[in-house]
Design a protein around this nucleic acid. Structure first.
Lengths: 364, 364
DNA sequence: TGTTAGCACTCCTCATCGCCGAGTGCTAAT
DNA sequence: ATTAGCACTCGGCGATGAGGAGTGCTAACA
């Protein structure tokens, strides 16, 4: 016997639901989230003590269905929460901005992430993995978009006669590198000179700016290496262009199979292939990029057909106050929103802090 | 009506199979690989013209079952090839080392890989993705183990007062980087001096060597920066240690659901969670590392329980003649070995050539 | 007027049953 | 040695029916 959550009356959409309706609705949602079974009036009155009989609850449920908060699978089945119900449910605690973060759990996750992640990509990848393990849901993680940061260091290194390694480091210590080919060998000492030039000229230029401005004008005065530099410019430019590519990691795809809603192979097949198509998925994550720290997209709110029966929760992480990337969870609309949001908050906080090194929890 | 493959008589295991038994067996294997349905004597005699009646085939099948090449799902069902049958089948063409590589397909794959891959990790990741797309199987790819290559360049860069970025470049242009923290600030000019020292001392040292030798002795003479260097040494050493970590990529996990053998959720669940557990899977791929260019592990030959009904084909790729990594395919024992081996060969050749830049198909 | 008990009705789930067909194994004929 | 014939096996599948959870409606009640 558990008692229904005591959520405040709420108004949303058309009508303000009275307190009892809210309780009934939340009881149904809570029950359905844990059992995945349609629930009937009698079961509610037995499991949650709302102080009224099943007949009364039955009437309330009938009303709630008419208002669009409940669905039936067939005429004499139990009720199931609608997307609208989940939306109401989620909105009721998303704005509470619940601070009750479990400090201990946060530090555990923080330690695990820092311990296993040497490079940035690893951090993001491990975040997805750990998030999936902890939640038992499919986790998504988007690597940071670094366009707006500034160049700290440029280095050209010869690999062999016709190949040059370009290394770019930004102010946050993110490293990107590309090997490119030249048609004509460039002696090492000249390469060093060019490297020095590039460093002088490019330091503190943003990647974005580098991308946009033609570099040509910048180097006119260095006529000594003019030819080489001219040959390098388009290559560097192209490399830089390719550098701000974003990676998407999905982990725990198999977790989907644990949900009873995916006992049917065909349902899960289309969803999985959608998740594994990184391009499409990336679109979705980038789409609502103007949005809040926590973004939730429930069922039919999703645009792509394979996601119409899913929910996606995303959280942003920040670099120096700017949102640069996201992590998220995907699963059936009947997901444990409350717990997942809490966990996502912990992850996004941790990732932000790690990449900012804001709080110097020094390695012991 | 297709005719059975005309493979030569073969002896393997206990008994030498006569020519007709071979043909019957190969017919069953071919059929089962494409249909996934147990096949009966009558169907064989109709679909493959072996010139004998179904009764004769029935007798042969009975013999083949006794020899362990065929299994029945129940007393009056059709036959299914055993692991032993697949082993025979595979061995018959693996040693032919069939050169009939489709040049056109190879170049297409090569172009796709080079077009999309700027960094090494991307190349490996894209290989897995493309391999999975092309074959419609789950693809695996192991990033190269770079322990045995030599250091080409070392660079220390300050990120902020207490953080230093360490960049290591090897002779092949592979870049690894780590951010580490110091307890005491090091001025930039000192850092540059140390960088120069490190470069002088570490160039052409193998990662392995760096890992083993204590660096301490190396820098004794540089008393000017002795303190800083001493503080750096264990950090660098630890970073290097963490640098030769291998990554494993799995792509197309959802492809498993296309196979009728995985219409049962429970079967696919354990397999998927196994594949998503990178540590275990890595073990498997690294285990047979002494082996041939193409390695095939069929059904019960696999050690781990979730793989007992799977086959894994792996191919190696090389850097300067040395095997440094692997790509592979995982799927039901009833896999299209011939086609998959061919495709894997193409991929492993391409990856080897790209990372060696042996043939300079210059960007146009 | 809101709440509740009672009851008929709906419809899903699951187990049972029997038929059909593909396939085997054996025997006897060629 | 090969083949035709035949009895037998067994999984798959659709039909059938019982059981149960749940609804909606009506009438009684505080």
């Amino acid at each position: 016997m558990r008692s229904a959550n005591n959520h405040p009356g709420e108004f949303r959409g058309d009508v303000m639901l009275d307190d009892r309706k809210m309780r009934v609705l939340y009881a149904i949602i809570d029950s359905y989230i844990t059992t995945a079974e349609p629930i009937g009036s009698r079961t509610i009155s037995k499991s949650f003590n709302l102080g009224v009989s099943s007949a009364t609850i039955r009437n309330e449920m009938s009303d709630l269905e008419e208002l669009g908060y409940l669905n039936k699978t067939h005429t004499s089945s139990g009720r199931v929460p609608s997307d609208k119900a989940y939306r109401l449910y989620v909105d009721s605690f998303i704005k509470l901005d619940n601070e009750t973060i479990n400090k201990k759990q946060k530090m555990e996750i923080r330690n695990a992430l820092e311990r296993e992640s040497k490079e940035l990509d690893q951090l993001i990848q491990n975040s997805a993995r750990l998030l999936s393990h902890i939640t038992s849901y499919t986790a998504l993680a988007l690597s940071p978009q670094i366009k707006e940061t500034r160049i700290k260091h440029v280095q050209l290194l010869p690999i062999d006669e016709y190949q040059i390694l370009l290394i770019l480091v930004n102010e946050n210590g993110l490293v990107k590198n590309t090997v490119f080919k030249t048609e004509q060998a460039i002696p090492e000492n000249q390469l060093n000179a060019i490297t020095n030039m590039l460093n002088e000229r490019l330091r503190n230029i943003s990647f974005n700016q580098l991308n946009k401005d033609s570099l040509k004008g910048m180097f006119n005065e260095f006529y000594k290496y003019k030819d080489e530099v001219e040959r390098l410019i388009p290559i560097i430019n192209k490399s830089v262009e390719s550098m701000d590519s974003i990676d998407l990691y999905a982990d725990g795809i198999g977790m989907l199979l644990n949900f009873p809603e995916y006992k049917d192979i065909d349902k899960v097949k289309s969803l999985m292939s959608f998740i594994e198509d990184k391009d499409q998925l990336m679109n979705i994550l980038l789409m609502d990029s103007i949005s809040r720290d926590i973004n939730i997209s429930i069922g039919q709110e999703n645009i792509y057909a394979p996601l119409k029966e899913c929910s996606i929760i995303t959280a942003t992480y920040k670099l120096e106050g700017e949102t640069v990337g996201k992590i998220g969870i995907i699963g059936p609309t009947r997901m444990d929103y409350l717990r997942l949001i809490k966990t996502l908050r912990i992850f996004s906080d941790n990732i932000s802090e790690i990449i900012n090194n804001s709080n110097g929890s020094v390695k012991r």
